[in-house]
C-alpha cells in the first residue's frame, strides 16, 4: 500500500528515462539484463517460486480436497458438497466452531484490555524502563509449545501449584481439576493464550504510544483534562489505526491457533476445547480422512476473510486520518 505512494509521489521525469529519445540499439540479452520489468522478474523469482509452490497452490488444493473423499494413501474422487453436508450435521464440528469463536472473542478482548493497560503502564517514566520492557516480551519469544508444557504442569490435577496455594490460603478445599472439567479446561486454555498474547499487544501498542507527542498531554493538562479525558480524547483516537492492525493480527492468530490447545488438552475433555484447527488435524491427519479435514480448514476461510477485511478498513482509516502520504 505504501509503495503506491512512493512511486506516485516521485516526479514523472524520473520515471521516463532520457534514453527513450534515441533508438535502442542494445542486444536482446542486454535489454533482458537492464530492462526494469525483466530485471524485476528475475528479482521476484525466488519469492514467487516459494509462495506459489507452497502457499498459493496448497491453498487451492485444500479447497479442492474438501470436495473429495481423499484419504491418506489413496487419491480421492470428487464428491461435491458431501463433506460439508456431513459436517453440517456433525455436532462435534459445531461445538468446535463454538469453541473457536468463544476462544477468539474472549481471549482477544482480554488481550486487548490487558495489553493496552500494560502498554500505558510501560509508557510512563520509571527506572529500568528498558529492562522491564525487554522482560515483558519474553513469553512471546519462548516457543508456544514449550510454555504450554509449563502450563500443563501448572494445571496438573494433583500437583498444581495454583491449587496448592489456594488451599494453603484457605480459599478452596479440593484440588481444581483444571483440564478435566469442560468449562474449567476452556478457561485454562484461554488463560494460557492470553498470557502468551498480551506481550505482543502491549509492545506493539507501546510503539504506537511513543509516537504520540507529549505536548498534547501537557496542553490538555493545562486545560484541566482528567486522566480519563486525556486517554479518551488524545491517546485513544491517535492509537485507533495501530489498534486496528494489531487486533486483526491478534484475532487472526487466535482464531487459527493450534499448538497451544494441542499441547495442553488435544481437544479434550469430551471435545470441550476442540478448535477448528485441532479438529481438522484430528480428522485429517490422525484419522486419515484428508478430505474431511480439508473441509474443516476451508470452513475457516470465511472468518479469516472477515478479519482481513477489518484490517484493510483499519488501514484505510489510518490513511484518511494522517493524510494520504503516511510513509
Amino acid at each position: 500500500m505504501t509503495t503506491m505512494q512512493t512511486s506516485t509521489a516521485r516526479p514523472a521525469t524520473m520515471q521516463t528515462p532520457a534514453r527513450a529519445v534515441y533508438k535502442d540499439t542494445r542486444s536482446l540479452w542486454e535489454r533482458l539484463r537492464t530492462n526494469r520489468n525483466w530485471l524485476a522478474l528475475w528479482f521476484m523469482l525466488p519469492t514467487a517460486a516459494f509462495l506459489i509452490l507452497f502457499l498459493a497452490y496448497p491453498l487451492g488444493l485444500g479447497v479442492w480436497m474438501s470436495f473429495t473423499d481423499e484419504r491418506i494413501g489413496r487419491t480421492g474422487v470428487f464428491i461435491g458438497l458431501e463433506n460439508y453436508e456431513w459436517l453440517w450435521n456433525d455436532s462435534i464440528f459445531w461445538l468446535s466452531v463454538f469453541n473457536t469463536l468463544l476462544y477468539t472473542i474472549i481471549a482477544s478482548i482480554i488481550k486487548f484490555a490487558v495489553g493496552l493497560y500494560l502498554a500505558l503502564l510501560l509508557n510512563r517514566h520509571m527506572p529500568f524502563k528498558a529492562i522491564i520492557r525487554a522482560i515483558v516480551l519474553i513469553p512471546f519469544i519462548v516457543p508456544t509449545v514449550l510454555s504450554a508444557i509449563a502450563f500443563w504442569w501448572i494445571y496438573d490435577p494433583q500437583f498444581s501449584i495454583v491449587s496448592w496455594s489456594l488451599i494453603k490460603l484457605g480459599l478452596i478445599s479440593n484440588n481444581i481439576n483444571f483440564l478435566g472439567d469442560p468449562n474449567m479446561a476452556r478457561a485454562s486454555v484461554i488463560f494460557a493464550n492470553i498470557w502468551r498474547g498480551v506481550p505482543f499487544v502491549a509492545i506493539t501498542l507501546l510503539a504506537g504510544l511513543q509516537t504520540v507527542s507529549p505536548s498534547l498531554y501537557e496542553a490538555a493538562t493545562l486545560d484541566g483534562a482528567t486522566d480519563w479525558q486525556r486517554f479518551r480524547y488524545i491517546t485513544y483516537p491517535l492509537l485507533t489505526p495501530i489498534i486496528a492492525v494489531v487486533m486483526t493480527f491478534s484475532v487472526l492468530f487466535t482464531f487459527t491457533d493450534f499448538q497451544l490447545v494441542w499441547a495442553l488438552t488435544r481437544g479434550g475433555p469430551v471435545n470441550a476445547t476442540h478448535l477448528m484447527a485441532t479438529l481438522s488435524y484430528q480428522r485429517g491427519i490422525l484419522s486419515g480422512r484428508l478430505g474431511e479435514g480439508a473441509a474443516i480448514a476451508t470452513a475457516m476461510i470465511p472468518f479469516l476473510l472477515a478479519a482481513i477485511a477489518i484490517s484493510w478498513f483499519g488501514m484505510q482509516r489510518r490513511k484518511w486520518q494522517q493524510g494520504s502520504d503516511n510513509d
Binding site: M1, L51, A56, L61, L252, S280, L290, A297
Partner: peptide
C-alpha cells in the same frame, strides 16, 4: 499487496494440502 495477503494465510488451513504436496 499480494505478498501482504500471503502474510495473513495461516498454517492451520494449509497443513493438510501441504502434507499431500
Amino acid at each position: 499487496v499480494l505478498i501482504f495477503f500471503a502474510y495473513l494465510v495461516p498454517p492451520s488451513i494449509l497443513f493438510i494440502p501441504l502434507a499431500s504436496v
